[in-house]
Amino acid sequence: MAVLTGAGSRALYTMTFPLMGGEAVIRFVEGRGQARAEQAGRAAVREARRIEAKYSRYAAQSVVSEINARAGRGPVPVDDETAFLIQSALDLGTWTGGRFDPTVGVLRKAWDFRKARVPSRGELDALLPLVDARSVVLCHGAVELLREGMELDLGGVGKEYAVDRATERLREAGVESAVVNFLGDVRTLGCRGDGQPWVVGVQDPRDRARCRFSIRVGTGAGVATSGDYERGFELAGVRYHHLLDATTGYPARGLASVTVVAPTAFAAGQLSTAAFLLGPEEGLRLLAERSGVEGALVTESGAVLATPGMARISSLAC
């Protein structure tokens, strides 16, 4: 834990740790001394790691691995937290008309973004029957994947959930001012230590070194971005990325990134994913219809579309 600045007894603490294959950063202002700060920080890190271990598809002992191992062979009892996350992922599928699907992960058998190879239609068609949210049955405290070979992936909602839960741990530990960033998904608590709003830069999807614009987040909110630029490759001028449209098996087209501000990181993450998969027009409409939500969409051509309220809280001149 690094203490970056101090003003009287209040200090800004920063904790950085690896999480979900990337970097997690927790920054918070604490005025009750280093021991209390470390206690609060450790509680947040513990919570993040608990969620990672529980829902990672890479961990053999995770709930998700257990559900996948039982695919086609009967239901698996789940607790309320898991049921909530699975239901949220299914809801996201409903919002997007099936373009998001919590079982889309099986397409990774055809898409290997590190090898920069576009799978054939036949390869995808062979896998698409296993991408079917309707075959995920959640009832009476149990979940069942009806077909053998299906794979549930809660990565689409789990990371933002971890951001919110870690922030909640900080709040429970008495922290009033914090910003939590797990691999680009952000949740703030209160205002910055100097009373000013937190300023969240939005990554330029086509220039890794720049922020495209910034957002002022006053009294706590979630900010999440979905984009085509982190996991993918470019071939013959076409960008292929990991945000796959479950109805076609191919990457969603039209947008380079979507950033959403919502009351929680969880909601912001769900909406940014949904808007990205829906494309510029439908995506913007989805965000504009939600109260307490603002969003900005950067199209593949570089144009920015934003909800009416975005101009008030960002550096965008909409």
């Binding site: 680009g184 998904d185 300023v199 830069g201 939005v202 957002i215 996991r231």
Partner: peptide, 23 residues
């Protein structure tokens, strides 16, 4: 100017206020 950065998830660092940008 910026406290933290929101981005698509990936193997990338975030730059905090006043800190040297890292990757």
């Amino acid at each position: 100017a910026v406290t933290t950065t929101t981005s698509a998830s990936g193997n990338r660092s975030t730059s905090a206020s006043g800190q040297i940008p890292m990757v």
